[in-house]
Design a protein around this nucleic acid. Structure first.
Lengths: 250, 250
DNA sequence: AAAGTCTAATTGTCTGACAATTAAATGTTT
DNA sequence: AAACATTTAATTGTCAGACAATTAGACTTT
């Protein structure tokens, strides 16, 4: 291990220890799946109590950096972060930023559609048959009449996540999916009448068709229309006083 | 508060408690800057020991959801996440994904430049004089001959973060800055000869000029050239055996 | 050989104590 | 009365030691 920590006082011990281990992981001195020393041994090495070590480990676990297993051959292991864990973390962060840092609805929508337009450029050249199939499956779903508003939104999220994946670039897929999912609560605030849903499904189909024909321009046009339409819906929602935050489903 | 938690066994108590409080924060039942009950009171309410509550709170603190203050009027407060905290979290997550999930150099570069090209479209229409001034300041810096490789990379990161900010959209700026910063370690692995630096600075200047003239196409061309050039450098680095990971600066 | 049992290692939780820090109340001096 | 010093109370941070729960592996029995 050889984890040193140059005491920046005023930070609690558990924070210092967490930082020491975190940097050891991030710059590779501890490799994935490697087992850390036991809590008892860590408290010895760092010269602190076991509770303090534990609080440090919990911090790291909350960042998905380590995972703890019980039992005789248990311990804390450097965690290979999964796509899902990373995405959950991204979504949480984005939602917090949106919720607490005066990010306007319009700004969120713009960021999301800007990102997606970038993805479409790549996806048009690369998307596979199976991506298209999944896209069309979601479109069908969106057209089924007995779908709650929230399920419709969820399908919308899935659709655009697939667009991200269709770029064939895992990082773009990750950022796209994170952004779309983070904005689901915002989208959930909108009211989708039946003809809104059909209009949206049609535009989605336009995108899918454009991708199938490898026609990026057509895809962009449909996305642009989708963005405008979303803005219209958002304006309607905003207009009649934005109160009564009930999303009365069922 | 009114925090209920429906026991999904097999998860530890501290995890359950953390989850309960986390959802209370995320969907707004606890508002920013609100003070949580003291640790003693939380242990009463949840019927667990103080250590368990503390571990839960440490988890939340690690996600920047709360912050703890000591003293008579201290306690745990719902944290208004700052741009910097959010970005640090994003960068950590992205770096972990890149480092541990078989993301290729090429994929990382592609994601970064795709994102940036999307930003340029907006920035061309919106960037302010002060953004341009900052961009040019970084370009000057990149041309100064006595600059270590790492400082050059750092300036590169700054440059592209400013491009993100020039979109005027805080979310895009956030994602752009996060992506660029996350890839700094990768960029640091490249070797920048003097003429490479000048070439890059020239392309940066091309971007800045294009933005000043509100010419998105010109900006894209320069960015495209920059992307190709970066790929060339990456190939060179890869070719002569990628060992000897020393980044001998100075 | 298979099945069950014991054992040791490790994390999870509990309890109770004390230290450190901070704001507010209280007291003291000018 | 105002300024300053002291005490007090509330709260988080750390410590120590205990026991429960879980797990893998060694051991025993059939």
């Amino acid at each position: 291990m050889a984890i040193e920590f140059s005491s920046i006082r005023k930070e609690g011990l558990s924070v210092q220890i967490a930082n020491a281990i975190r940097s050891a992981i991030i710059d590779g001195r501890l490799v994935v799946e490697e087992r850390l020393p036991s809590e008892a041994e860590l408290s010895d090495r760092f010269g602190v109590s076991r509770s303090t070590v534990r609080e440090a480990l919990k911090r790291l676990a909350a960042q998905n950096l380590i995972r703890s297993e019980r039992g005789s051959s248990g311990g804390a292991f450097v965690n290979r972060i999964t796509r899902d864990e990373a995405q959950e973390s991204l979504v949480t962060t984005l939602r917090l930023m949106i919720g607490m840092n005066d990010i306007a609805f319009e700004e969120a929508i713009e960021a999301r559609f800007t990102l997606e337009s970038a993805c479409l450029g790549l996806a048009a050249g690369r998307c596979k048959a199976e991506d298209l199939a999944e896209l069309r499956a979601e479109i069908d779903r969106q057209r089924s009449p007995d779908l709650s508003d929230e399920d419709f939104c969820a399908s919308d999220v899935t659709f655009h996540s697939i667009v991200g994946r269709a770029t064939g670039n895992p990082l773009l897929a990750f950022q796209m999916a994170g952004a779309v999912e983070a904005m689901q609560p915002l989208m959930n605030m909108l009211v989708y009448r039946l003809r809104d849903r059909h209009r949206i499904a049609d535009l989605h189909e336009g995108i899918a068709n454009a991708l199938e024909q490898r026609n990026a321009d057509a895809a962009w046009q449909n996305l642009e229309a989708l963005a405008s339409y979303t803005r219209e819906l958002a304006d309607k929602r905003r207009a009649p006083r934005q109160g009564s935050g009930d999303t009365s489903n069922n």
